[in-house]
Amino acid sequence: MKELPAPVLAPADFQQRLLGWFDKHGRHDLPWQRDRTPYRVWVSEIMLQQTQVTTVIPYFERFMARFPDVGSLASAQQDEVLHLWTGLGYYARGRNLHKAAQVIVDKHGGELPQTLEALAELPGIGRSTAGAIIAQSRGQRAVILDGNVKRSLSRLHAVPGWPGRPAVERTLWALAEHFTPQERLADYTQAMMDFGATLCRRGAPDCPSCPFNDVCVAHARGETRRFPESKPKKALPTRTTLMLMLCDNRGRVLLEQRPATGLWGGLWSLPQFDDDESLRAWLDQHAPGSQLDPPQATFTHVFSHFRMEITPQSARVERLDSVGEARRWYDPAQPDRLGLAAPVKALLTSLAPFSLTAAPGP
């Protein structure tokens, strides 16, 4: 494969068409475009990774209200950061955002680094995200290649292969570099993301409205749905787990904090067990005299790389004086500000008759 296939347009023509479309149809009033600072752009870019703009907006606004600057984020407890991330998914993003804020305060004087290299060294910031932060917040020339840009360039040039393959990704980076201008970098970067998100969409691209429909190779071939080519599929493995909903006589539910790394790292969850035998053994040891209710219906929670079949198991205990380390009682009627795994949050809000009010949104 050639490193750079013949571009369909000269850079100036490509930029003129894209920015002309953006000026008329792009998004110009997103929350992070108002009072634009490196910090606000950074938080928005992390939230927007694998998440749609409409989903991100309310999370971003709540996050900014609580953490208006990098110092307030760095000094916060991880639980509060993850609480505001609950429901947004991909929780490593929230943990890395918190860690990066602490690094920025400790090593960069509370200011986001101004170079791509220094930004990319921070937790959770890769090459494309660093480029977006630089271009959007400082107007400096930087290249981006997020999922939207990969899709658009793949279709425009009918680039064969899955973009996750290193050789294909190198080709797309070369094309992105070729088209990136020297001016209007913030607008150009937003335009590339908007174009892929609203026009050159994954499932139903709006080819008649596209400013490149006369030169798009995939469109000319009638193969827009083929590009970009999909990752070779593997059957998602399935895991099973029992989630213990242990309630005391005050209607509180026992939670335990997940390890800092791995699945739902740092979040609070219901105690999990591989089978009924291990669950009962745990109860015998930690909550003797507890009463088990019939298990609830199993439901499935899908992750990017596996499926989890969850069976909730309710139990009641009159009293449990010591819950041990990394565990706490949680009152659904007066919920603490904790980061909760999404299926756990759903279970806690459905704990009638124990729950008097639903837990608030993230």
Rank of each mutant, 00 (worst) to 15 (best):
C210S: 03
F195P: 00
L242V: 01
R221N: 14
D284F: 11
T224H: 05
E223R: 09
L254E: 09
K234E: 12
H219T: 04
Q272F: 02
R239G: 03
D293K: 03
A281L: 13
T298S: 12
G196A: 05
A260L: 09
D284T: 12
D275T: 02
A204N: 04
A297Y: 02
A281F: 01
L267S: 03
P271Q: 06
G222R: 07
R307T: 12
M193Y: 05
R225C: 11
L263K: 02
R239V: 04
W264D: 02
V217A: 13
P288T: 14
T198V: 14
K233T: 12
A281G: 13
R226I: 15
P288D: 09
D206S: 05
L263T: 05
T238F: 11
R252H: 07
A281N: 14
F299M: 06
Q296R: 15
V302E: 15
K231S: 10
T198K: 03
P295W: 06
S230P: 14
R258S: 11
P271W: 07
C210W: 08
C200S: 01
D284N: 11
F299N: 02
N249S: 14
E309H: 14
H286P: 04
H305P: 02
L254V: 06
R250N: 07
D194Y: 13
G262F: 09
L199K: 00
R239Y: 13
L236P: 11
T198G: 00
E256R: 11
M245Q: 10
G262V: 14
G222Q: 08
H219N: 10
M308V: 03
T261L: 07
P294I: 02
K234D: 05
W264F: 13
Q272I: 01
R201C: 01
A191E: 03
L246F: 04
G262P: 12
V302C: 06
P232A: 13
K233S: 11
L270R: 11
S209T: 03
P271Y: 10
L254P: 00
F306A: 06
K234A: 13
S278E: 09
R201H: 08
F303M: 06
Q272R: 11
E223W: 03
Q272V: 04
S290H: 06
M245N: 01
H286G: 01
E229M: 11
C207M: 07
R307G: 07
C210G: 02
T261E: 15
T311N: 02
A220S: 09
E309I: 00
V215S: 10
C216M: 12
D194K: 06
R250Q: 11
K231Y: 13
Q291L: 15
F273M: 02
G251L: 06
L199W: 03
G289I: 14
A287T: 04
Q272K: 08
D276V: 09
A297H: 09
G289D: 00
P294G: 03
S290A: 15
D275P: 00
